[in-house]
């Protein structure tokens, strides 16, 4: 042994001046004290009147209703859900192309993913909102602004969803495809009846995460530019805030985003826990 013979030394264990139990107690007490001091300082320095006036102004908040729900929240949900549905199916197609035996399909899928995952969403929205209508004159997206927004969010989310689906498809054990093929199913039949249903179950938690991210990304579609009836939560709060110079509407908009994303985050955690227990 290199540590010279501590084991050999008999007798009572050496004692520190403070027992570990006492030391832990003191350490905890200090941590609580620091916390209390910081809170006290913030409470004392802050100008609560003006904070409340700017961020939690009841009169300003009243002006935001009911529009923030009937226009802002409604549009945020419509934009996000329509973009997600489009991105879901487009992403599935891109994922299958990415795993295809046909080289050009793989190449197209890879280029698509790299472009739309690599570009900031706001760049895609600008191009779709301004460039496309001018370049393709006379072409109109159906149900604008909903059509354009769904396309913009769908194109961006499809790139992320494609990679999620690819991971899911590759996570399905090889034996599943072999069993399906040995029963006489064709490659395509095995993919759609056996592989994809299981792949989607595997990636439900990350798919839900993508939905949360898309709720937040939907705030960027304001750059496409619409009239008041097309405002989503962010643009609705932002326009009220700039009109009045008061941030309460933005706080409200933020609150409604959290109303959407926090429950979804909870769902993701539940699903992940459930998968860990092995029951998908």
């Amino acid at each position: 042994m290199t540590t010279n013979g501590t084991v050999a030394e008999a007798g009572p264990a050496p004692r520190a001046r403070l027992s570990p139990r006492k030391r832990k107690k003191i350490s905890l007490a200090i941590q609580y004290a620091v916390f209390a001091v910081v809170i006290a300082v913030v409470v004392l320095i802050a100008d609560w009147k003006s904070i409340q006036h700017v961020f939690l102004n009841v009169d300003e908040a009243k002006k935001a209703f009911p529009g923030i729900i009937t226009v802002g929240l409604k549009n945020t949900i419509i934009y996000t859900v329509s973009g997600y549905v489009l991105g879901f199916f487009l992403g599935l197609v891109v994922a299958l192309m990415r795993l295809s035996d046909v080289m050009p399909y793989r190449a197209v899928a890879l280029i698509y993913i790299e472009i739309f995952r690599g570009l900031p969403a706001i760049v895609v929205f600008m191009i779709l909102g301004f460039g496309v209508p001018i370049a393709f004159e006379g072409f109109e997206m159906p149900h604008d602004p909903y059509g354009t927004v769904a396309l913009a969010l769908g194109l961006v989310s499809a790139a992320y969803l494609a990679e999620t689906f690819r991971a899911g498809i590759q996570a399905v054990p090889r034996g599943q495809a072999e069993a399906a093929r040995s029963l006489g199913m064709s490659q395509g039949r095995a993919t759609f009846s056996i592989i994809i249903p299981q792949a989607i179950r595997i990636v439900i938690p990350p798919l839900t995460n993508e939905l949360i991210l898309l709720f937040k990304d939907s705030s960027l579609v304001f750059v496409i530019g619409f009239t008041l009836s097309g405002y989503e939560l962010f643009k609705f709060g932002e326009s009220l805030s700039t009109q009045t110079g008061n941030s309460t509407p933005m706080i409200l908009a933020g609150f409604f985003y959290l109303c959407l994303t926090v429950p979804l985050g909870y769902v993701v955690r539940k699903l992940e826990a459930k998968q860990k227990r092995g029951r998908v």
């Binding site: 034996g175 599943q176 069993a179």
Partner: peptide
């Protein structure tokens, strides 16, 4: 019939 059964889990 496979060693790992390979039943369809879903």
């Amino acid at each position: 019939v496979f060693q790992q059964f390979n039943l369809f889990g879903h």
